[in-house]
Nucleic acid binder design. Structure first.
Lengths: 335, 335
DNA sequence: TTGAAAGCGCTAACAC
DNA sequence: GTGTTAGCGCTTTCAA
């Protein structure tokens, strides 16, 4: 890595002349600018980003904290974040909380030492369950902005980007009701999470708004520690009538489908199933699973746009709460 | 963020005294050390990482370039990388090449301006296909180490971590042969990639080594741009006898299973199927897919260990070529 | 035992 | 039009 100083020596001019010339300053003569630029290119000069960061107190880097990268939803959000960040000239430092409060708090603290200009994150499950918020407040007090997506904290005032979870669940349930399904079950493996509660509420609201259809909704809560398939098998063993299933996390849908098929249900004739997920997560089920499709990459992109806008705006920016649309993808497990 | 300077003012001592005290230098008196540390804690002092980086010409940051984060294999490697990096006190800057040469070269160049101490990466498909290597050489010439995992370049001398791809494919094929399968097909959707070629070779070698069994192996190459399901359907349409299938990429397995079931094959009685993937990628197939299981997180962990060792070692380190074991996970789609 | 000063690479106000 | 200088936050040599 060649530096300005070395370039200056080679050119027999001062460091600041080189600096100004490379930045095309009008203070410097045409000829010099050309000469400097040429030499810089020849030696493949690149401004040292660390020095720039120190000088400007700006790193052009965003800290991203993801609860679980093996969850396709988060992977796709990260995809969106990275894409938009690159476009805006930002790097991302990625930390994975693995759903743990400790790791999340640690990452925030560690990166708040000047490594990043702001954070984009989704809250770890443990943090949500235990309602921890002090670590967020610490960061915000240091005037480092945080943007939360998907799993957000009511108790914290900051930019937020979420799915329209309530509406999505509402629409899916309404669809089953209008199909004529009477005994619908709601598989909730994420009841501890804010989004889980929201989606659950959406389902019940649909039932309420359509009571003339006389559909029933039974919520099956599965603790996050428990095996999905076993829990679902257990419920089926109860022999309650079921003709509709809504899964509000992004893996249960496939499990329900397989179990139902094994038990002899014709899908979708005997039973409709709707999963919750980004497209293409369960591409190989047969029949193909109908889903509530989150536009996960759009969540990532919007998050970056909102955060970068805040970072680069001269004037104070109002807190943003953005809702990302979803779509109901009816494939082969619904009528 | 409080700085050393501000602490020094509050304590009425010099900046260097504060610095030394915080680092527990023996030059400084016990009493002063205690006083300084206390005040530092009170004001929640954290050394500015950017300043440290500039001073030490070390960022304690690794640049990670992933071809496709939506591929579960890479997501899990990233998981391993992040986990081990955090353990070693490194941050990771994540870039996604999305299989494009341009993006890959760009990320390397961008981060080589002092942002990272070294790189961990897997080569983008486009880069491999076009055999581009100059961008790697540029970086290595700047004395910034690169470690390649999974998809590596023969033409470049650097640390490498790979699956034992040849052996994995060999063992899987041998298993099918010993099951008595005679007409085995090899679904190769990644023939352009080095790992694809290696796995393919492993399969053929097994056939050769076991010619007394009289098993046949037919390779079905699917261009990466083509739809897997359509291509597989097309092959099945040819009505060639098939009683064994090996899929050497990590999604085709599920597709083959569904198509075979739809066409009336009993699995595994009529046909054995083995997929290639990390565990739990296709957890909801029925019957459960047998797979060649990569230990993807181990790849990530090993990569970080090797790179960090190189970065922190005083003496020159020999180039490392590490092979990660796999396991053959026989579930329900094999006899 | 403590402090002053230089320097990592860069920019920008100010001199010349 | 070009150069000098200070300073971003930190460590470290050298001087007191």
């Amino acid at each position: 890595m060649i530096t300005l100083k070395e370039l200056a020596e080679k050119l027999n001019v001062s460091i600041s002349t080189v600096s100004k010339a490379l930045n095309g300053s009008s203070e410097i003569g045409e000829a010099t600018i050309a000469r400097v630029k040429e030499t810089a290119k020849m030696y493949n000069y690149k401004p040292n980003r660390v020095a720039l960061s120190l000088k400007n107190s700006k790193t052009k880097t965003i800290g991203v904290i993801i609860p679980n990268i093996l969850n396709h939803f988060f992977a796709k959000v990260l995809y969106g974040i990275e894409k938009e960040s690159a476009k805006q000239g930002y790097n991302i430092i990625t930390c994975l909380s693995n759903e743990l409060y400790e790791k999340e708090a640690n990452s925030l603290e560690l990166l708040a030492n000047g490594s990043v200009d702001g954070f984009i994150m989704s809250i770890a499950e443990e943090t949500e369950v235990n309602k921890k918020t002090d670590h967020f407040k610490d960061i915000l007090n240091q005037k480092i902005p945080i943007l939360m997506f998907d799993r957000v904290s009511q108790a914290i005032t900051c930019d937020k980007v979420v799915n329209n979870d309530f509406q999505a669940a509402y629409d899916a349930t309404m669809h089953l009701i209008k199909e004529g399904r009477k005994n619908i079950i709601l598989i909730n493996k994420i009841e501890e999470l804010s989004v889980g509660k929201l989606r659950s509420k959406g389902c019940f609201k649909a039932i309420e708004d359509a009571k003339q259809y006389n559909s029933n909704l039974t919520e099956v809560k599965i603790p996050s520690t428990e095996n999905v398939e076993v829990a679902i098998e257990n419920y089926f063993d109860k022999k309650q009538p079921i003709d509709g299933v809504i899964c509000i996390d992004n893996i249960s849908g496939g499990a329900v489908l397989n179990i139902a098929k094994e038990r002899g249900y014709s899908i979708p004739q005997d039973m409709s199933i709707i999963g919750f997920s980004d497209d293409n997560v369960l591409p190989f089920t047969s029949p193909k699973l109908s889903t509530i499709a989150q536009h996960s990459d759009a969540i990532g992109e919007a998050s970056v746009q909102i955060l970068v806008n805040r970072l680069e705006s001269k004037e104070p920016v109002e807190t943003v709460f953005k809702t990302i649309d979803f779509s109901l993808n009816l494939r082969e497990t619904t009528l």
